[in-house]
Structures are given as structure tokens and as C-alpha cells.
Amino acid sequence: MKANHDKKLHPKAGSGIEKIQWQDDELGATEQGTVISRFGQHADVENNDGTIYRCNLRRSISSLVCGDKVLWRLGKETEHSIRGIIEAVHDRESVLSRPDVYDGVKPIAANISQILIVSSVLPAFNSDIIDRYLVAAEQTGITPVIVLNKIDLLNALSQDEQTNIEQQLEIYRTIGYQVLYGSSQSNEGISDIKRQLSQHVSIFVGQSGVGKSTLVNALMPELGVITQEVSQNSGLGQHTTTVARLYHFEEGGDLIDSPGIREFGLWHLTPEQVFNGFREFEQFQGLCKFRDCKHQNDPGCALISASEQDIHPKRLASFQRILASLGDNKLTSRFND
């Protein structure tokens, strides 16, 4: 960290300078901070007392996202709403990225400890989509938690449909995933979700229509007001509504709200990475008869044999469908938020 810090404090000659420049004696002491949001070559940084300052970035900083821990310095005067400059970025404990068709894999947010995968009763519950999010989450090392939203609508389903959803959720619990229930309409489960969020930096993911926004608003009613105030005061117009931003829960814990999660596909993963995204498969790694086993109808496939007892057939079938989709065109193999 120190070597990285020194390098960023003293960029090479000719590497470029910021539009707004301060001499060293025009800057305060180095402080610790957290990136609340990133806007192009600017970022909002929160210091230890909760005050937020808009800062420039040193040109030597190659990557900066919401949630990053940084070293920064406050300018003694404000220049065009810019209050300071970010000098260096601490190593990340975790980073959440998404594949981009044009730019490769792009980081979205850093230092997240928990991903809440939101599904819902309506539109129709889809375990394949949950499995895809779980595979993506397992690549990051960030703990995934499954949330079934809109549980106030369960009574609108047939008994068979309700049983099917509960049986699928029980599969996830058996594997070791935590499952929560919630409803922004009836307020059921909201207190349980708040407790789950209280000790974490969290992010919500899920398909369009599952009710992420209404669920977040139920958990943090002040969010809409904060968003509006930020948009009015930022001086950056519409950008404030299209970037990731970190918010604090009154009961403890943080939420990173990111539109960048709308495209969270798997087309960039290898078959081995998909395999590793199914945590219950680990004990069968390397046990197939053939080293190039495709886990479809291959003779001696350890997964197929295990599906008779140790692996649920629905999970194996989902894994096989994901593998089959990896060869699809990038534009069609994504799944949207």
C-alpha cells in the first residue's frame, strides 16, 4: 500500500495534470475517506465525520469505484465546486464487476460484503435466473443471500405453485444459502432484512419487475429524498441518477445502489468457472472419468452420478443449461436487471 501510495503521490513527469491544480501548501493533511460516488474524473468522498467532498482524481489512479477506501487531501479553497483531490486507493477487500460487450469486464463497486439476490412471487419465480446470479456472485467471493420478494402475493398462486417455490428455496437452504422473505406492500420480513443488512455493505441484484426499488424504498424510505437532493445540489445534472452511490442505514450497514448491475451476464466465464459457481459441486471436482467431461451425457460423469443422491437434479440441469448458453452471442446471453 505504501509503495502504491508513494507512486500515486508523485506521478511521473509528463503523465498529465488535472484541470484544477493545487500546490502542496494549498492542500491540507492526508485523510482517510470512502468514495460515495464516482462521476467521470470526479468523485464524492466521505470523511470520517460523515462530511462529503467532491474531489478530483490523480491521473495515476487507474480505477476508482463506489465503495473504494481512499487517501485524499482537502484544498484550502474551493475551485468550481471541487474541494480536494484523491491521492491513492487502498487495496480492495472485494470488487463486483460486470461484463461489458465493448469494454470487457468493468468494476462496478468495491468492498461489498454481501449481495442480495432478489426474486419474487410475481413475475413468475425463476430458479434458473437465481442460479445465474449465484454463479456470478461466487466468482467474487462476496456472500450471496437470496430474497423472495412480494410474498403478499403468495395467496394469488395455486397450492402447487406455492409448493414449487418453497421446494426450490429449500434446495438453496440445503446447499448453505441464506433465504429471506419480504414484502414492501405488507411490510412482512422487512425487519429481518434490515437486521441482515445492518453489519454489511450490501448491493441488490435481480431481474426487472422483482421489486428491488420498492423493496429498497421500504428498507430506506429516505432514499428518494436523498437522491433528489443529490441531483439538485450536485451540479452534474442527470449523471447523479445513473451512477452507483453508497447510502447508510440508520440501524447500521451500507447500501450501494447501482444501475450498472442491470447487465450481469456470464458469457465471459469459462466452463470451469461456472462449475465453481455451483458450490455443492466442489467435492466432485476432478472425479469424472474423462478430463474433458462436458457434464452432459458423458460416460463416467461424476456430477450425473451424484445427481442421483448428492446433487439435486434441478441444479444439475440448470448448470447444464448455463454451460450450453456460454457459446451464445454476447448480446443475447446477457440477462438484464
Rank of each mutant, 00 (worst) to 15 (best):
D91H: 13
K2Y: 13
G14L: 05
Y102D: 11
N126R: 01
L169T: 00
L64C: 09
V105N: 12
D310K: 12
F281E: 06
K294D: 11
D254S: 14
S305I: 09
N4T: 13
N297C: 12
Q167K: 04
H80N: 14
G206V: 03
D337V: 12
E170R: 04
V70M: 10
A302Y: 07
K12Q: 11
S81A: 13
G206D: 01
K19S: 08
S60E: 05
S325M: 05
V70Q: 08
A324W: 01
D254N: 13
N56K: 07
S208V: 03
N336A: 08
V243E: 12
Y172R: 00
T140D: 03
G33K: 02
G252R: 03
P271A: 05
R59S: 11
K150Q: 04
Q159L: 13
I130A: 12
K330E: 12
E77Q: 13
I175S: 00
N48V: 15
H5W: 14
D254H: 14
S158F: 01
S184R: 00
A317C: 07
I86L: 02
Q238N: 15
V95A: 10
G14F: 04
K294Y: 09
L269G: 05
R321D: 09
A306H: 11
I36V: 14
D160N: 09
A124C: 08
G224N: 12
S94A: 11
R92Y: 08
Y53L: 06
V147F: 02
I112R: 10
L96P: 03
V145M: 06
A137V: 01
R262P: 04
L154S: 00
Q23M: 09
L269F: 04
I115R: 05
M220I: 11
L64K: 06
G33W: 02
A88D: 10
L27D: 02
G209F: 02
I311N: 04
G16S: 06
G104N: 05
P123Y: 00
S113G: 10
S119Y: 00
E170D: 08
K7I: 09
R38W: 06
S119P: 03
L122G: 02
L116C: 06
I203S: 08
E161Q: 12
V205W: 08
R58L: 04
P221H: 06
V230G: 01
R58N: 02
I304S: 14
S258V: 15
G209D: 02
L169W: 00
A88T: 02
I256D: 11
T241N: 15
A124F: 10
V145I: 11
L148W: 00
G237S: 08
D25F: 10
F284T: 04
D328W: 12
S120P: 00
G28Q: 01
Q178N: 03
N126L: 02
T240V: 09
G14Q: 06
L154C: 01
Y53C: 03
A124D: 12
E308G: 15
E282C: 07
D131R: 01
F290L: 12
